[in-house]
Nucleic acid binder design. Structure first.
Lengths: 360, 360
DNA sequence: CGAAAAATCTGTAACGATACAGTTGATCAT
DNA sequence: ATGATCAACTGTATCGTTACAGATTTTTCG
């Protein structure tokens, strides 16, 4: 037994280096955080054995595993993340890449909540990696890839040809997107059925006798612009109604801009009697414009709006709302990245959130 | 020179050893990410020297530092977070502890954005550590403290005697709170001046001739309940008007509950002609109740509401709103934790956000 | 019974960074 | 000269974990 004092005790049982705070025995907590070494000492086993026992390796005896697990639970062992990360490269982190200008009216909150709820049952942490839209949207993704800051990424505001998606696919890095792409490449995503929404919205307007419709649409570079546009145009064709162009602004513009533009439209020659809005916030601006021109929603014009929460239903019940459940999207996205990390093929990790009309 | 092949080359330039399981080669490690070793090799210096050069240690020559910095920049060196964290315990993480039921209407988004904006210029990452209100609010804080998951914590929904604050102070752990406490202990905080808000709100109502006021208040266990209550009560005394009790619900209740309760009040004997609302979401429920009883805001009753965003001003301009800038709170909180981590005394890290009335 | 094969367990060497205790020369006072 | 001092740099150990290549039994079986 030339074991050179391998058993040199527990990892500094009483950390001496407590920052001062003068005086008495304040029960300075110090770091008595148990490590594998602690458990190894307590069980009389080797560190390696403990490590392998805790991950249920096949070459460890059943009784030993039981003992190790018992002690581990007893002392409240939790693996040191830095140790694992350094050794294995596994970060146990999911990075949510967020535009700092993400729609004001609460898109971020529910998605963060949704993701958190899923991750809570796992060892994963959620890290928010922001970017200002003025800067390159690719930068945060590149950062995560280059530094290995996370095991998986969630992005939103996808484009048909999305450079971020291309990059992550090329590096075979696990991710999920809120919104689809159109590159002929399979990847995990969750998306709201914007085409279905727009189609149903037009139908709802037609059923109310509206014949001259217009659309407040997403910005052209985002994928769901096409989806919504397609649904809208197809429905317009199917129901044989007329459209009024409204292309000067989109839902990414400020409320002021939207209001101004729509008011100009309403005061012009070709006036719509029904409008489909792709954004809850945008709808507020539309309402302002409508009422500023002395019109009444439900009487002179009808509005169908996609909304993230239902306060519009409280304040303007005359607006027809269809709820997009963003928190649910958070759930799906988190589950998708985790499954992708676990090796499930991308094709199985694509989901579409159906219509959930809260009103008609 | 018995240097035993210290110069064994760069850190495996093309890492072949994916720690992966037998299946798909997910998450290729293939990163030839430069480390100190890389720079040491390129400059011909020792790893230690490089490390110390990069942190501008006094015992490294000026020219050497310059060379090291140049090469480091050239190869895009970024310190491995796991390495630093394991060795020093420094995580470079700020943890935002969040209630998953945080007010629906967009409190989370802007605070996350605000914090992110400050952290973006630092090496810190933002990790969201959630808790469901059903479970102990202390749990996430304990987790961070026990596991050393972060260098600093931001919490909200503070209580007068807040166990989380007591715990972190006792352990001398850097943190900042959104909201004050009342324990006679100094700690970093940012708070909105809810007393000032309530006082100004009452004044605004009185100026409109309202004499019988009521308050939709925060839940009694949170600190700012007292603040708002104080401001309200003091103003009521100062202006000599009457109050109608409305204690059956608070801003944490569901919109339905608030609406029902307020409608009952309005249909009862003692009817208020002015109400102060401590929550934008709650105000929506109040409006519904008011209109359900056939009353008109601005005519029969006036409403002053604290709001996180100004869409209420768009949809119900007759409501008097006062904006609480949550994003700014995020800025202040982030700066406060960082300063606390840097060793600044708590007393210098307390700020109050003044009134910023968006209307009258 | 002896050897091969399991079944269990263990030490060593990394991962990347830093604290600490040296090691070089060169410079300086005596 | 001689040792002391200083500037500039470097090796070693270590943080906690895991991959890997042995060890040590014990079992199996020809």
């Amino acid at each position: 037994m030339d074991e050179t004092t391998k058993t040199d005790g527990l990892p500094q049982t009483a950390a001496q280096a407590g920052p001062q705070t003068g005086g008495a025995q304040l029960h300075l907590p110090g770091n008595d955080r148990p490590t594998l070494k602690t458990i190894a000492f307590m069980t009389g086993l080797g560190i390696t054995t403990v490590s392998r026992a805790l991950k249920d390796a096949p070459d460890i005896g059943a009784e030993t595993k039981e003992r190790v697990r018992l002690v581990a639970r007893q002392v409240g062992y939790q693996p040191n993340r830095a140790g694992v990360r350094l050794r294995t490269g596994k970060t146990n982190v999911i990075s949510l890449v967020l535009s700092l200008e993400e729609e004001i009216m609460g898109l971020t909150s529910p998605i963060v909540v949704g993701i958190s709820e899923v991750l809570a049952a796992t060892p994963y942490h959620l890290v928010v990696t922001p970017y200002s839209p003025s800067r390159d949207a690719l930068a945060p993704v590149r950062y995560v890839l280059d530094t290995g800051a996370a095991d998986g990424v969630i992005i939103s505001r996808t484009e048909p040809k999305d450079a971020r998606v291309a990059l992550m696919l090329e590096r075979n890095f696990p991710f999920a997107t809120h919104g689809r792409t159109d590159m002929g490449l399979a990847h995990p995503y969750h998306d709201y059925d914007n085409e279905g929404f727009a189609y149903a919205a037009v139908r709802a307007l037609v059923e109310r006798g509206r014949r001259r419709l217009t659309l407040l649409q997403p910005p052209p570079h985002l994928t769901f612009h096409r989806h919504m546009r397609n649904g809208f145009d197809r429905a317009v064709r199917d129901f044989g109604v007329e459209t009024i162009p409204f292309d000067t602004v989109d839902i990414d513009h400020s409320l002021i801009d939207i209001r101004t533009a729509f008011e100009r439209l309403l005061r012009g020659g070709a006036v719509p009697d029904g409008i489909v809005s792709g954004s809850g916030a945008g709808t507020i601006a539309l309402i302002a414009a409508i009422e500023a021109t002395g019109r009444k929603i439900g009487a002179d014009i009808d509005v169908v709006s996609k909304v993230p929460s239902d306060f519009l239903g409280w304040l303007r019940p005359e607006v027809i709302t269809m709820k997009e459940d963003i928190r649910h999207a958070g759930h799906e996205l988190a589950k998708a990245v985790l499954a992708r990390i676990a090796g499930r093929p991308p094709e199985e990790l694509q989901s579409l959130s159906g219509l959930d009309r809260s009103k008609i």
